[in-house]
Write a protein that binds this DNA or RNA. Structure first.
Lengths: 109, 109
DNA sequence: CGGTATCCCAAGCGATACTG
DNA sequence: CAGTATCGCTTGGGATACCG
């Protein structure tokens, strides 16, 4: 059945960019290159463990790239890969929908 | 900062239609009206508890509607509300991205 | 600065049994 | 058929401490 294929593709997307932190991280990285500490500052609720972990996973999936500057103190920059740019459309649609849904919630509350 | 608004909207979307089962359920309901048992048949891995629970939540958020036919044996139909139709765009984009991502995974594996 | 390592907790989810 | 109820577990995530 065709819907099984649809279902699996959607699951794949959510597995790759879903979860509690990945969409948030990507919201910031889509704006440009950011250092570890900058991400941490923009997302204060996240622990360093989770930030590092999620960044690793996104890197392994080819969504973001990690650039290490061999210097002291260390400097590491994260950015969307060319491939990673393709999730922007997904984020944008989720943003648009979420925005109007928030409005709807407020109105009927 | 503008990205905080973006972030929150995306979070709202994922809170409403994310998770393990909601996107899957919606993939089927977007095709039309379905009974509880039909959904269960299409999604064999889900337990009845989770199916019922997720359907309740989607109903409360106004995404789907529940129509009970007062008869024995019981008959309950689920379908997208008019408002619920609006998530189709989100699902479609997630489908498209997931589909090409699966392909990418297969190719480099 | 940019991480790991370790331990711990709670929510989400699953299995099973039961019901109108 | 379409659910609830109960219990138990897994796993995602948090707190804290430490390191190159």
């Amino acid at each position: 059945m065709g819907d099984q294929e649809f279902k699996n593709a959607v699951k794949t997307t959510l597995k790759t960019i879903g979860g509690k932190w990945k969409p948030v991280i990507l919201c910031f990285l889509k704006e440009g290159v950011m250092r570890f500490s900058e991400l941490k500052r923009e997302i204060p609720e996240i622990t360093e463990k989770m930030l590092a972990q999620q960044l690793r996973e996104l890197e392994q999936d080819g969504i973001i790239s990690r650039k290490v500057y061999p210097q002291v103190p260390p400097k590491v920059e994260y950015s969307l890969t060319e491939y990673g740019q393709t999730i922007q459309e997904v984020l944008d649609v989720m943003y648009k929908w979420g925005r109007q849904h928030q409005k709807r919630i407020r109105e009927k509350a």
